[in-house]
């Protein structure tokens, strides 16, 4: 009996255990950090022979299930800031539209691949390095418990945002800021997510922690809420326009992610916020270094099938 599953849209066959393991990794990340995991899973799927476009689109389908489960659990626990999440989502949809237009412009100029790759490395490198540095500093400064956001020294950014109109209180996040801040930041993340072809969770989480000053436990739930709708949109659009969603692939990843999410939830309960951030920053930096190595080393074969970044 074969332990392979044939993927009709990817036109390939993959060992079932391999797909379950990849799904488990994503579930673990989703449960621990509130990210979709697309930034990690898409390159891994490409490495096992899934065409890039199918990998990215099917990944979104899987993340719909994982983030639904996560959002449901966090909503029950009262750790989703729906008000903040909705504003970020509106900004994200607008940013996604602008990002798609920008990519079309860059493709017409023949520079899209170069810009996307360099963007990826710069973004992952800066976010990973900053998170790692900040978490180490946080652990040294206040090992137990972390300093509340309200007591942090007001930065230039904080002072500027305090002067903006439409100030409102976000009860769940226990912050007060202008509605324009999450809207603009959501738009910027949407542009980046569209350019990089991912859900944007790994950019959104640092944005919520460092720029919106949201507490980590609300960040995870709110990020999952926002990712759910972003990936829902991507799944339907990719199925409709590009026919690149492989449902069987998504289903296998989903089963694995359910197992991974259980493990992630148990590990997460034993870790402090700063430790979680260090882990996340290490993962981001490893992915960045892997991409950088791929760009600097000469490929074995100097041609590739067309159809992905």
């Amino acid at each position: 009996m074969s332990f392979h599953v044939y993927l009709p849209i990817a036109h390939n066959s993959v060992h079932i255990l391999l797909l379950l393991a990849l799904g488990a990794i994503v579930g673990l990340l989703s449960g621990l950090f509130g990210v979709g995991g697309g930034f990690l899973l898409t390159p891994l799927l490409i490495m096992i022979g899934i065409p890039p476009t199918v990998a990215a689109a099917s990944d979104s389908n899987q993340i719909v299930a994982a983030s639904t489960s996560g959002t449901y659990a966090h909503a029950r626990a009262g750790t989703v800031d729906f008000k903040m999440g909705t504003l970020l989502l509106i900004g994200g949809v607008l940013g996604g539209f602008l990002g798609v237009k920008l990519i079309a412009f860059l493709r017409a100029m023949g520079e899209a691949d170069f810009v996307i790759t360099v963007f990826y490395i710069v973004m992952l490198g800066s976010i990973g390095t900053y998170m790692f540095y900040d978490s180490i500093r946080g652990l040294r400064r206040a090992p137990d418990p972390p300093e509340p956001p309200e007591k942090r020294r007001a930065s230039v950014y904080a002072r500027l945002s305090a002067r903006l109109p439409f100030q409102m209180r976000f009860e769940r996040s226990k912050v007060e800021l202008s509605a324009l801040v999450p809207l603009v930041l959501g738009t910027l993340v949407g542009v980046l997510a569209a350019i990089m072809g991912v859900g944007g969770g790994f950019i959104m989480v640092p944005v919520m922690v460092y720029l919106l000053r949201m507490p980590m436990h609300v960040v995870v739930g709110t990020s999952l809420f926002q990712i759910l709708f972003t990936c829902l949109n991507v799944t339907i659009m990719q199925s409709w326009i590009n026919r690149t969603v492989d449902f069987l692939l998504a289903l296998m990843l989903l089963v694995g992610s359910v197992i991974g999410a259980q493990i992630g939830a148990r590990i997460g309960k034993r870790l402090k916020a700063e430790q979680l951030k260090i882990l996340m920053s290490i993962i981001v930096l490893v992915v960045m270094l892997k991409m950088l190595y791929g760009l600097l080393s000469r490929p074995d074969i100097l041609v590739a099938y067309r159809g992905g970044h």
């Binding site: 449960g31 449901y72 029950r76 998504a250």
Partner: peptide, 28 residues
């Protein structure tokens, strides 16, 4: 239709998972 069905199945699977396991994700 394929995209809508794939999304609906994913949402149902996610809700079912959340209901069965009642997990808290990364909340801590």
């Amino acid at each position: 239709l394929y995209g809508v069905l794939a999304s609906l199945i994913a949402i149902l699977a996610g809700l079912l998972t959340g209901f069965v396991f009642g997990r808290k994700g990364g909340a801590h």
